[in-house]
Design a protein around this nucleic acid. Sequence first.
DNA 1: CGCATTTGACCCGCGC
DNA 2: GCGCGGGTCAAATGCG
Length: 279
Amino acid sequence: MRTEADIGNPACGRAASLPNDEAKVLEAKLTQMSEENRRLTEMIAYMYTNQMARHSLEGEPASPTSKKRSRESTDTSNSGDANSTKKIRTVEAEHVDVESPVSDSTCRRIKIRRVCTPIDPSDTSLVVKDGYQWRKYGQKVTRDNPSPRAYFRCAFAPSCPVKKKVQRSAENSSVLEATYEGEHNHPQPTGATELPSCATPGGPVPCSISINSSGPTITLDLTKNGGGATQPDLTKVCREVASPEFQAALVEQMARVLTGDRNFTEALAAAILRKLPDY
DNA sequence: CGCATTTGACCCGCGC
DNA sequence: GCGCGGGTCAAATGCG
């Protein structure tokens, strides 16, 4: 962000060659604009922070460790074969690290990630293909959502602590919300980058949209599907990009990047100066 | 027959 | 202390 001192620095512009009165008027205008710029930047930062905080709260009503059961730690009996042909094909809607509020002396961070995947509303299977092999160990109907919630454990490595909860969105039954808890302590199964045949008609698209500490990003994987995304895939990608959530996140990210770019703010200030009357 | 999934029972934390 | 609700277990069941 360009500071008021920077913009008002006579060495930076033509103000030095102006009469005193004009220079002072311009300086006042610049000061006003700089102040407004600063307020807007603060507002954007505030909104962004609020959004991220809201996501983390909505995404996980309770800490995964807050209800730890003593017997849970003993469950390492799961085993499974490497999943030969799976690939990440999900729309990553949220990506938040949550500090466990439990007064755990180890104070370890549990990574919680929410992934939304568009599905066919008529598809009742709670399966999200993400490249890992999962073993379902439970299903429950929760109070806030008529759709059942499925519980999965990573079945690839017996000691992998990652769990996954999958449930249809309460607002939109064509969206599957998967909540991942923890991080895999093993590499993704070999061959996971290979595409399986698309089992679900409304399956996830080969793109990922993520919001993390560096802001929202979108990645289109056009190298898959035998050399390129199919037309339906591209249509889905376009639908995702056109969603209000993504666009809002995109606008915020752009604002953040632009206001943080010194070159941009300088160019903007210069452009505004040129548009000022008597200039 | 072995493995994965289903599903009812149970455990445990939280709020009242 | 009790009830509620989310999360997990484990026996039953289904499937290849």
